[in-house]
Amino acid sequence: MTTNQAVQADPRPLLLAAAAQVTTYVDRVRLDDLDRPTPCAGWTVRDLLSHLVAVSVRVPHVLRGGHPFEVPSQVEGVADRDWAGAWAERQPELVAALGEDAVLERTVHHPAGDMPAAAAIVTYVSELVTHGWDLAAALGDTSGLDDALAATCLAPLQGALPAGIRDEDRVPFGAVVPVPDDAPALDRLLGWVGRDPRWTP
């Protein structure tokens, strides 16, 4: 079975792996890291954590038939010392939603439009992989990121998000950053969503 076939068959383990990778970096954040810049333009580490926690709420909501914009893209009211806890306490609901028997048979509402749940899950894999890199880069250590995980969602994302489509309302990504064809999959994924893999704090 090829990687693309595996993704199409059941991408849920990939999303769980991407979330686990994010957890590794969320747990490393210290209070004095929260005001650091990130590759997300205009966002500090605090802003990025706020979005990541929101994503961990939005994904189960979407997979269960909800509309994505019913869930804010940033959470409010989390104390600076509580980000790791806020992320951790939302993970069981993500696991539960992914474990529902009929989830892969559903058509779900995604910001980019209605699509099969499996396709939406792959887009969220790419989002968590990208934001995992954002956080790791902001903290100054990307050495623990899994290039194979990035490889699983690169081709599906390129197919779903052509280079010429960059619409802030539906697909909020910048222009593609050129990356060599033989670069690691993570670098190519980052370039496709408008990140510069060479970014440093």
Rank of each mutant, 00 (worst) to 15 (best):
residue 1 M to C: 08
residue 2 T to C: 09
residue 6 A to P: 01
residue 6 A to M: 13
residue 8 Q to R: 15
residue 9 A to C: 04
residue 9 A to G: 04
residue 10 D to M: 08
residue 18 A to G: 08
residue 20 A to L: 11
residue 22 V to H: 11
residue 26 V to L: 14
residue 27 D to I: 08
residue 28 R to L: 14
residue 32 D to I: 09
residue 35 D to I: 04
residue 36 R to K: 14
residue 37 P to Y: 11
residue 37 P to V: 09
residue 38 T to M: 13
residue 40 C to A: 14
residue 41 A to H: 15
residue 43 W to R: 10
residue 43 W to C: 08
residue 46 R to W: 05
residue 46 R to L: 14
residue 50 S to C: 13
residue 51 H to N: 13
residue 56 S to N: 15
residue 58 R to T: 15
residue 60 P to I: 10
residue 64 R to V: 08
residue 66 G to K: 05
residue 68 P to W: 13
residue 72 P to K: 03
residue 75 V to H: 02
residue 77 G to H: 07
residue 78 V to D: 05
residue 82 D to Y: 00
residue 84 A to W: 04
residue 89 E to F: 12
residue 97 A to K: 06
residue 99 G to L: 04
residue 107 T to E: 15
residue 114 D to N: 06
residue 114 D to R: 11
residue 118 A to M: 04
residue 119 A to H: 09
residue 121 I to A: 01
residue 121 I to F: 04
residue 124 Y to H: 06
residue 125 V to D: 01
residue 126 S to N: 08
residue 129 V to K: 00
residue 135 L to F: 02
residue 137 A to S: 12
residue 140 G to W: 06
residue 141 D to M: 05
residue 146 D to R: 03
residue 150 A to V: 00
residue 150 A to T: 07
residue 159 G to Y: 10
residue 159 G to F: 11
residue 163 A to D: 07
residue 170 R to V: 14
residue 173 F to T: 12
residue 174 G to Y: 03
residue 176 V to K: 04
residue 176 V to E: 03
residue 177 V to E: 01
residue 181 D to C: 01
residue 184 P to F: 02
residue 184 P to Q: 03
residue 187 D to H: 15
residue 189 L to E: 00
residue 192 W to A: 10
residue 192 W to P: 10
residue 197 P to L: 03
residue 197 P to V: 05
residue 200 T to F: 09
